[in-house]
Structure formats: structure tokens, C-alpha cells
Simulated assay, not measured.
Amino acid sequence: MTGAAAPAPIAAPPGCLTGVRVLDLSSYLPGPFCTQILADLGASVIKVEGPGGDAARQLPGALHEAANRNKRSIVLDLKTDRDRELGLRLAVGADVFVEGFRPGVVDRLGMSYTAVRAVNPSIVYCSVSGFGQTGPLRDVPGHDVTYLAASGVLSFPGSWGDRVPRRPGVPVSDLAASAYATVAILAALYQRRDTGEGAHLDLAITDAALAFASVRADAKLDDQGTDHSHLHPANDLFEAADGVTIAIGAVEEHFWERLAALLAEEVPALADPRFGSATARRAAGDELVTLLRRAVRARPAAEWLAAFAAADIPAQRVLSVPEAGRSPHVRARGIVADSGAGRHVVFPVLRDGAAMGRVHSPAPALGAHTEQVLADLLAGKEPW
């Protein structure tokens, strides 16, 4: 029931959402990343974990640490009557409730929207699940890759020449769900100011991914064109002579003209008038990509990047996340914050020249705040 002694409280700087209280029953990535955004912006977030903790704690890597900073962790076994009652007492004081279970689980735990709304009619209650609370797939299990498949995202090849779907290295559907959940919560809170009414938000991860994928289809969602209709031969990844990968984004005509003039010094065929329009370049895309790759392989990346910069051509070296986090540009933006537990990319929007997100505590140990929060709750004090 109780975890380690709670760390000394760290005074959080005021943020846009200071005063908003969030009860977080979600795990893995979609729900926790949403509530971390709210916490970065000043909301007070209490994360409720079962006795075994968020399953993300057991996964390789640092997924839990990446999605749970600025929160407090308490352990409640919601399968017991006592802890279920404590959970509902916490919900009484919350503005936002986020859960990430499969449909039906919160009903069995006694923390459904109906149960929470009975003790807090103005609650903004957000359910994040793979396929949503309704529909024939609502009970089907999944993870990011299956949601990407079901939403159409994986039907698009990523590079010219690909003939099969490629899974993104970043969990696109999970993070899309986090973003939409955050926006929906803030919209519901805004509306509540006028109406006093809460809401039940039903966020399906697959729906969020479909919304992202729809930008590649036509306006009626009747057609997404051929396999390469969304690609441009000169908008891709190319390997330089030293093995470094460069991303080039010569989509608009003026960028293509500059790129072709520069690369034609190595491969004269790139100046061929046959490549003089976007339509023609797509029609000859296989040949053109071969020529572009040959040209870029002729020099090391540093030479090309300097030449591309001088010619005002969109091009960047492909960086790792640590390299990007240490780059002079990111440092100048101020969106990476240091804490005793590592470095964090905070809410990445600047307001009046300063990053809106703040780090006041790293992801908590399991149950680190159980004693403190429950003692306040049982004493009739404000636990937030």
C-alpha cells in the first residue's frame, strides 16, 4: 500500500495550467505522455498505479521515465473495496481523470465514468484505448504497430523505391493519441468554464492515427493514389561518400532547380530537361533517384551540407536524438531541461520567447508519494 518515503517537495514554477488537478490511471505511453504534457504546463498530476506499477516500468529502455516526469505516484489496489473508495475520494477533487484500460476494465475496478461522475459531476474524464469505447473492435488488443496498420498509416511507403510498408521508428499512433487527448481535455476544460459541465472523452488510438494518415488521401477518403503519389524523388534520404545520411527536401521548383544545378557538377544528367517539372520527375522517379544517389555519394557529407546551405537548399544531416538534443539550435531554443535524473525535452513551444514546459521532478519511484497523499486525503486536507 505504501511506497518509499516521498522525496522532499520541489516548488514548481507557475505554468498555464497551475491549479488544474489530474488523476492519471493510464500506463505505457499514450495516456502518460498526455498527462505529462499537462504536468509540464503546470497541472498537478497524481499517478495511480496498481501494486505491480505501470507496466512501462518493466520494459527495456526509459519509456516510463520519458512519459512520467512532474507527477506523483501512489499505489492503490483498486480491486479492493478500501482502495477503490480512496480512488473515488481522490477523484472528488480532480478536474481531469485519464484512464488507459481496455473498455470494461474501469467498470470492474469501480472507476468508470458513471462512478466518477457520481462523486464529481464536473469531471473531464478521458478514456484512451486502442479502438475506442464503441465499435466491433473495441475489445481487440493492440499496440502502436497494429494501430498503425488498422489506420492506414502503414500503407504508405516512406521512401522512393520502397514497395512495402515501413514501420516508423517513433510510435506515431501512440503519440498522435496523446496529442489529441491533450487538446480534447483542454477544450473540455475551456467549455466547462461556461457550462460547469464535465464530459466523457472517448479517444481511440487508431482514430488518432487515421486522422494523421488522412492528410495523404483525397478529400473524400476515396483514394490515396498510387504507391508513390505522396513522394517526391528529391525529397528523401541520401548517403554521402563517408556513409553519413543526408535528408534533402527539394520539393518546390526553385529548390529543385538549385539542387539540380549543384549536383549536375557530379552527375551532368541531372540537368536534363526531362526532369524540368514535378510531374516529369515523378514519371522518371526511379531513374532520377538513382542519379541523385550517385551524385550525393560523390562527396562527404560536410562538403555537401556546406554547399547546400550556401545555395539555400533544404538539407540536414540525419542526427540521433542525443545529437539533436545537444545541437546549438536546440540549445538556443531552450526546450531541453536538465534534472538530477537526466535531460528532458519539455513541452516544445515558446511563449514570449521562453519554453512553456518546466521540469520540477523526474518520473517518480513506484508509490513514492502514497503515504503523503493518502495521509492528506484521510485527514481532510487538500492532497493535490
Rank of each mutant, 00 (worst) to 15 (best):
P14K: 05
T18K: 00
G19C: 12
Y28T: 12
L29Y: 12
P30G: 07
A39N: 06
I46W: 05
I46L: 11
G53Q: 08
R57V: 14
N70M: 00
D77R: 06
D81F: 12
R84Q: 15
G87F: 01
L88P: 07
R89A: 14
A91N: 10
D95S: 09
V98M: 06
P103R: 09
V106F: 08
S112H: 13
V119D: 01
V128W: 13
G132Q: 07
R138M: 08
R138V: 09
R138I: 09
Y147R: 01
Y147E: 00
L148A: 07
S155R: 12
G158Q: 15
W160F: 09
D162Y: 08
D174V: 14
A179G: 07
Y180A: 08
V183G: 01
L186H: 01
L189S: 03
D194R: 15
A199F: 06
L203F: 14
A204T: 13
D207Y: 08
A217C: 14
H228M: 04
D236P: 00
E239H: 02
A240K: 01
D242V: 01
I246T: 08
I248S: 02
A264L: 11
D272Q: 12
D286W: 01
R293K: 09
A295L: 02
A295R: 02
S327L: 05
P328Q: 07
P328M: 04
H344T: 15
P348C: 06
R351I: 11
V359H: 10
P362W: 05
L366N: 08
L366R: 13
L366C: 08
G380N: 07
P383Q: 09
W384L: 03
